[in-house]
């Protein structure tokens, strides 16, 4: 197949043009959010919110309000409910999140079978980018554009919040506003993506670009830029590939993103697998230049420690959200 035809042939169709615009928009806004999620360790949050929007869509249909509003409300409710349950019980955060979003998703399915809607479940779950209308495109452009503007304007505050919430609070930044603001932005992003890739595949788009960029650079601004570039090129390539092989568009976009990640994972100049191996084989490297995790990742070590201990010895420790000051739980 000639490369020009590969791109020009689909362009002859109006629906392909709209699909391309849609996937570019969604790709870009998801990519920006993904940088924060990857750094904050909130990948599961994207997973949870996106599953949880299902009942919101059905209820919005019943009430006759815009589906996006219902989806947004449900997504935010999931995030808030998770926070509430976690704060008030001894169940771990990831478990609580799993319970809440699966419960909401399950409830959404039950509702869906009982309510006659004009929506196809498959389209909600997996997206239907080839069927978007111009009105859909405008709606997405407004939501995604607004989200992008806010994130980019407040990108430094959000970054500081992800990096060191204690410092953010100490210098008087409104940490709660940032926390819930990020959740709101995440919900908006997911809502804007449903038509294009559906509520399951959006999780991939909320992780892969940020993860790819994270392996390529040590500067956050560059990370944002790379993530957006990766996501947009994946959107274009994926859309065209899906046209030619007649496969699910959302899936193709996600697979192209995954392919990009794989390339970077292997060949990244600084943090790639091959580079790491090279360095390991050269013992004489100066200490300062060895890339990669010098200390254990907090997310990895913190997660699995002392879980069963709580069964035996529960309570005693202040169940405070802001426990970051006393980082060493093990020592207490």
């Amino acid at each position: 197949m000639d490369p020009i035809g590969f791109f020009s042939e689909p362009f002859a169709y109006d629906f392909m043009q709209r699909a391309l615009g849609m996937s570019l928009l969604v790709g870009a806004v998801c990519a920006v959010l993904s940088c924060y999620l990857v750094l904050k360790g909130w990948s599961l949050m994207g997973d949870a919110i996106s599953h949880a929007v299902l009942p919101g869509i059905v209820i919005a249909f019943v009430l006759g309000i815009p589906l996006a509003v219902g989806a947004f409300a449900a997504g935010l409710a999931c995030a808030l409910l998770t926070g509430y349950l976690k704060y008030n019980s001894r169940v771990k955060e990831d478990t609580v999140m799993g319970i809440v979003f699966s419960g909401m998703f399950g409830f959404g399915l039950v509702l869906f079978t009982k309510v006659e809607t004009d929506q196809h479940l498959n389209h909600i779950l997996f997206g239907n980018v080839l069927g978007v209308t111009t009105a859909d495109l405008i709606e997405t452009a407004i939501i995604a554009g607004g989200t992008l503007l806010v994130v980019l304007a407040k990108r430094r505050d959000l970054l500081l919040y992800c990096f060191d919430p204690n410092h953010a609070r100490a210098i008087g930044l409104p940490v709660n506003v940032l926390h819930y603001g990020l959740l709101v932005l995440l919900s908006l992003t997911i809502v804007s993506s449903i038509k294009a890739v559906g509520i399951i595949l959006v999780i991939a788009m909320l992780i892969a670009p940020g993860a790819t960029a994270y392996l390529l650079t040590d500067r956050f601004e560059r990370m944002l830029l790379i993530a957006v570039l990766v996501a947009c090129s994946a959107s274009v390539l994926g859309t065209f590939i899906s046209f030619h092989i007649d496969g699910a568009t959302g899936a193709c976009i996600v697979l192209v993103q995954a392919f990009f990640f794989l390339l970077v994972f292997l060949f990244s100049p600084k943090h790639g697998l091959l580079r790491l191996r090279e360095l390991r084989d050269q013992p004489g490297m100066p200490a300062g230049t060895i890339p990669g995790p010098a200390e254990p990742l907090p997310a990895l070590s913190g997660r699995t420690d002392g879980a069963l201990q709580q069964v035996v010895d529960q309570g005693g420790r202040p169940a405070d959200q802001h426990h970051a000051i006393e980082g060493r739980h093990g020592a207490e």
Binding site: W42, I207, L215, A251
Partner: peptide, 23 residues
């Protein structure tokens, strides 16, 4: 073999496989 957090790693792999299944 990477410096990614565990949750991102898991999310990346399972969504990719899911997309493959969907395709």
């Amino acid at each position: 073999h990477s410096r990614l957090r565990e949750d991102a790693t898991i999310g990346l792999v399972f969504t990719t496989l899911f997309a493959l299944g969907l395709l």
